[in-house]
């Protein structure tokens, strides 16, 4: 039986009827039309589906949409304001913190979380902060550079 859920995504209210078994990532992509969060492994390993739930980074493939009822979600689409990229997005652009780009939405959301908790992370702290996000292209170095740049520590 479908359940009614009401939540806010990127500041906007959404109300929908969903099956309880619908995963949040499928809700975001197929019902709300937000295809920024990606489906990589769907087993909570790769982190491509990372979004903010109540201000904390979570994997939206291992959560039901009904669990987000009454909650606040931010996806990658919610970061750029008035056409200007978020500083983390800009840093990934400048430092070329991506190759194919598939993991990037999740990497950027995990980076937002990391810098929120720790504004000046060391290299090791950056790598630990991103341990829930896999990238198969970059070898991570450019991603770490991008996070450092975003933290205002480029070249440190």
């Amino acid at each position: 039986m479908k359940r009614k859920i009401s939540l806010r995504i990127n500041g906007k209210p959404y109300t929908d009827e969903v099956e309880p078994r619908l995963l949040l990532i499928h809700y975001l992509r197929e019902v709300a039309g937000l295809t920024g969060p990606h489906i990589g492994c769907e087993t909570s390993i790769c982190g491509a589906c990372t979004v903010m739930l109540q201000g904390r980074a979570v994997k939206s493939c291992t959560m039901f949409a009904v669990q987000a009822d009454g909650r606040e979600i931010v996806t990658i689409e919610g970061l750029a304001a008035n056409g200007a990229l978020d500083p983390v997005q800009q840093a990934f652009w400048n430092e070329h913190g991506l190759q194919c780009g598939f993991c990037t939405p999740g990497m950027i959301m995990a980076t937002k979380q990391l810098l929120q908790d720790n504004p000046s992370p060391t290299d090791l702290e950056i790598r630990h902060g991103l341990e829930g996000n896999l990238c198969r292209c970059t070898g991570y170095q450019h991603i770490v550079n991008a996070v450092k740049a975003a933290a205002g520590k480029a070249g440190a």
């Binding site: 739930l53 904390r56 980074a57 990391l114």
Partner: peptide, 9 residues
């Protein structure tokens, strides 16, 4: 417990 995402949930 690995990954901030899992620790948050």
């Amino acid at each position: 417990i690995p990954s901030p995402q899992i620790r948050h949930m």
